[in-house]
Amino acid sequence: MQLDWFPLWLSLRVAALSTVIAFFGGLALAYVLANRQFRWKEVIDAAVTLPLVLPPTVLGYYLLVVLGRQSPLGKMFEGIFGSPLVFTWKAAVVAALFHAGPLLIKSSRAALESVDRSYERAARNLGATEWRVFWRVSLPLAWRSILAAVVLAFARALGDFGITIMIAGNIPGRTQTVAVAIYDAVESGNGMLARTLVLVISAVALLVLSIANRLGAKRFGSTYTPV
């Protein structure tokens, strides 16, 4: 029997795209959370964390309401791109985003906050603008932890089931990601396909985790602070 590899490619594409989006958006938000003091800061942080603790179906339901074809956002999307968002592969990206984003924002914030403030102070003292401080000092020093977070976010985005099935559905060849395909295969008694996909996705996850662990190890001796 010929195996259908489409779900795996779709999952990888969706996970990669959502990780890229989460990276740029998440890093900016993480920087603000790590460096600025303002009201509602911890409320925003909590809101960002919410997707990690809510049941995926609940999130999926919210998203259906907010992004559905009858909602203002859904109509706007349809107006701009000419096709609806829900029940397309783009909706799967949105679903994955809700797994990758929180993880990235939380980890990047922690990584940026763990950079010894004296380096940033020194950089400002030496005439660097905030932009330069971030790109030349904060980011390089937090880089490995952030990269580890990116890899983890990718792995997490790869495996979403609940949100995807709610807003992207289970359309073979169009929106059927690996997690959904496995469920579908088991339901329809296609044990061979289920086993293969389970093994492949486990191997990918293991590989990604070992990369993340290696990145997490620190580089400049045991600590960043030279005393």
């Binding site: 010894d116 004296s118 380096y119 102070r121 020194a122 950089a123 003292n125 000092v137 020093l141 400049f220 960043y224 602070t225 030279p226 005393v227």
Partner: peptide
């Protein structure tokens, strides 16, 4: 400013 731990960028 010469910081106590020098704060050289590692």
């Amino acid at each position: 400013y010469v910081f106590q731990n020098y704060a050289l960028f590692p």
